[in-house]
Amino acid sequence: MKLSLRNAGWRVRGKDIVHGASLDFAPGQLTAIIGPNGAGKSTLLRLVSGLLPATSGDVQLDDVPITTFSSARLAASRAMLMQDFPLRAQFTLRELVAMGGQISAPFMSAPVRFELAGKLLERVGLAAFAERDVMDLSGGERQRVHLARVLMQLEAAVHGTDCPPGFLLLDEPISAQDLSRQHLVLNLARAHATSGGGVVLVIHDLNWAAACADRIVVMHEGSIYAQGAPEQVLTNALASHVFGLEEGRVRMHVGSGKPYVLPHDMIYQ
């Protein structure tokens, strides 16, 4: 399965928010999208998902325009965790996660769906709260239960088969998490890629992006500025031009060979 952008863009009120984007996303790969605020990262991810219709170019799934697929096929092929997830209805965590499989796997019985939902809650560290009302959770806990829901959407679709899961699209999935749970969430993303699925995540933290991604895509002023392996992309020159950092702020980690930035270097000069 391949997910692609072909010269895709989105224009609103006469302004190009994203323009000329051409990318291929492959199973087994974790791609991190980085860039300054307002660069078009979340818009790019929404284009990839098909939730936002391209106003130019094309978005394709296996070389076929994504607009031609049914909602059930799309739900089985990709799932997106958004930055904001307004929710006012009262559901238990198990009920909410189980809903993730209703469109992508209508064939799955309710007992099996609820059993899988319980396993996914355990993976995101919320099994003890399975019967609690979602509205009683903290922001970070709610973010993780929605991660379990989108994982449910993909895993239910291939439950009991040898088919790999589809694409997991994550918009700032660690924004409300403490350090240990940031590690947990990104490990779950990596596990999804290792299992044969594809992962595309928008992330502001350059260090986590460099540490966890196979490929980094840099957005700048609505277009793709650079892409490649972290050590090739996250250079001092790029950090200076795109993020406004002073030269010399990007260093290479001795153990991993991956780039990193120390905030201390930006404060104590």
Results as ranks from 00 to 15, higher is better:
182 Q>V: 02
8 A>P: 09
179 L>A: 14
14 G>A: 09
203 I>A: 01
115 E>W: 09
165 P>G: 09
129 F>C: 10
185 V>P: 01
134 V>P: 02
148 A>E: 09
168 L>P: 04
78 R>W: 02
189 A>H: 07
19 H>C: 12
159 H>A: 08
72 A>G: 07
177 Q>Y: 04
210 A>G: 01
180 S>R: 13
83 Q>M: 05
107 F>I: 01
184 L>C: 03
139 G>T: 09
53 P>W: 08
6 R>F: 00
17 I>H: 13
22 S>C: 07
123 R>S: 05
14 G>K: 11
45 L>F: 00
29 Q>W: 00
107 F>P: 00
116 L>M: 15
147 L>Y: 05
222 G>D: 07
205 D>I: 07
94 R>T: 14
78 R>F: 00
231 E>M: 08
241 H>I: 02
229 A>L: 13
175 S>M: 07
126 L>H: 03
35 G>E: 10
108 M>K: 12
127 A>M: 11
94 R>V: 11
48 V>Y: 00
44 L>C: 09
237 A>Y: 05
215 R>S: 01
187 N>H: 15
243 F>L: 10
37 N>L: 11
3 L>M: 07
135 M>T: 11
97 V>S: 12
172 E>M: 09
263 P>K: 14
142 R>E: 04
136 D>A: 13
31 T>N: 05
93 L>D: 03
96 L>D: 05
52 L>H: 11
54 A>R: 13
203 I>C: 00
93 L>G: 02
233 V>W: 04
234 L>V: 06
27 P>Q: 15
141 E>N: 13
267 I>E: 10
252 M>E: 08
28 G>Y: 03
107 F>E: 15
156 A>C: 10
182 Q>N: 05
265 D>H: 14
45 L>I: 05
177 Q>G: 02
224 I>A: 01
140 G>W: 05
33 I>E: 00
101 G>W: 04
176 A>T: 12
205 D>S: 08
131 E>A: 11
6 R>K: 13
44 L>M: 11
197 G>N: 06
242 V>Q: 04
206 L>T: 03
247 E>I: 05
189 A>Y: 01
237 A>D: 15
60 Q>Y: 00
205 D>H: 09
103 I>Q: 14
241 H>V: 09
15 K>R: 15
183 H>N: 10
266 M>I: 13
254 V>D: 15
76 A>Q: 13
237 A>E: 15
122 E>Y: 08
213 A>Q: 10
117 A>S: 13
151 L>A: 06
1 M>V: 07
164 P>Y: 01
217 V>Q: 06
116 L>D: 02
17 I>F: 10
111 P>H: 12
131 E>H: 13
92 T>F: 05
238 L>H: 07
58 D>S: 14
223 S>P: 02
175 S>D: 07
266 M>E: 09
216 I>K: 12
112 V>T: 14
117 A>Q: 12
108 M>F: 05
124 V>W: 01
228 G>L: 08
164 P>T: 08
97 V>A: 06
178 D>L: 08
93 L>Q: 04
58 D>M: 11
242 V>S: 06
36 P>F: 07
35 G>P: 03
32 A>Q: 07
113 R>C: 05
165 P>I: 00
181 R>N: 15
23 L>N: 02
231 E>S: 12
